[in-house]
């Protein structure tokens, strides 16, 4: 199988500085060979030879849930980029970036890649990068659901415009964002140590999926429609059949309210833990951990809207007890 094209999704509210960030990266030597999919015609300034426009066509499939919408436009644009990257055996593109529109929910894009067998074979979603500006970002997070959803599914957060006089302190923005998504890896775009090359590096996803910062979800009080996060501690070794039954059923019924689930799980199948990671109804293949990362305790982090921890924890316990009771019954059964 040929190498998959590394893909980064850059999301962020209107005026947050997504295009500026992408432009900055394209001007750097490491930015060479990057194909960009933009689904907002209003944004200008990118080199058009690198750009594939995607009109915002969303097809709703299945139960009509937004995260199950197929972004036919994005799928088509990625297909074109992959084809171009393979042209005549030359690698014209070695990386792809999708810049979403400011009001877009990025989860249908993630879902489109996860569900399309061809895209799964040819594109590797490395990370979702949320851009938030230090001037209006806090207000946007407070007032706009779209802004919260964009942060909720991101792996990395880039705080822009921190040098402006009206900017809020970066730590306040980061604190507000990590209240929504506790495992976000924050960056300050004005920090001299901030490296776009590292942000858009193929291995960035590994550190993101392994939790560049420790997974410590803030147990925020949740109201019915709020986006919030919580952690579930897992047993040392989890029963994989029971766990997968539980999680797949949970995502089937409540995937539209589970903006993101991420965790580290030890199973009876292997010595080292695996990291699991899903956005709404779509789960990514488990990532295997080795070395130092393997020592972390098992847990799950949920970022939800209007779903609280207790019913989810009780439901998991029920499934695990069922499996335990079944295995006891199984063992005592005459051969």
């Amino acid at each position: 199988m040929p190498d998959r094209l590394p893909l980064f999704i850059v999301t962020g509210f209107l005026g947050s500085g997504k295009t500026t960030l992408v432009q900055r990266f394209l001007r750097e030597p490491e930015g060479q060979g990057t194909g960009v999919v933009v689904n907002e015609f209003g944004e200008a300034g990118l080199d058009h030879r690198l750009m594939v426009h995607a009109a915002e066509n969303v097809e709703l499939i299945g139960n009509g849930c937004m995260c199950c919408a197929r972004r036919a436009d994005v799928g088509r644009a990625l297909y074109d980029l992959v084809r171009m990257s393979r042209q005549d055996g030359q690698s014209r593109f070695t990386r792809a970036i999708i810049e979403t529109s400011g009001l877009a929910d990025p989860s249908p894009i993630v879902g489109t890649i996860a569900r399309d067998p061809w895209l799964r074979q040819h594109v590797e979603l490395v990370s979702v990068i949320a851009v938030i500006d230090a001037v209006a970002g806090l207000r946007n997070l407070r007032d706009f659901d779209e802004a919260r959803r964009q942060v909720a599914i991101a792996d990395a957060l880039v705080v822009t415009k921190t040098d402006l006089r009206a900017a809020h302190p970066t730590r306040d923005i980061t604190a507000a964002a990590t209240t929504i998504a506790p495992d976000l890896v924050p960056h300050d775009a004005q920090d001299p140590d901030f490296s776009l090359a590292r942000l858009f590096d193929r291995t960035a996803g590994e550190s993101a999926s392994r939790g560049g910062t420790p997974f410590t979800a803030t147990e925020v009080p949740q109201h019915d429609q709020d986006v919030g996060s919580f952690t579930l501690a897992l047993p040392e070794r989890i029963d994989w059949p029971a766990f997968t039954l539980w999680l797949s059923a949970l995502l089937h019924r409540h995937g539209d309210r589970i903006l993101r689930v991420k965790g580290l799980v030890r199973t009876s199948a292997g010595a080292n833990p695996v990291v699991i990671h899903g956005v709404q109804h779509s789960m990514h293949p488990p990532v295997h951990l080795t070395g130092e990362d393997a020592g972390q305790p098992s847990f799950l982090v949920f970022i939800t809207r209007g779903l609280t921890r207790d019913p989810i924890a009780q439901s998991l316990t029920r499934f695990l007890h069922l499996a335990e009771a079944h295995s006891r019954f199984h063992v005592s059964e005459p051969a």
Partner: peptide
């Protein structure tokens, strides 16, 4: 699965 009567 969040229904208390589901799965045992």
């Amino acid at each position: 699965p969040l229904d208390p009567s589901f799965a045992g």
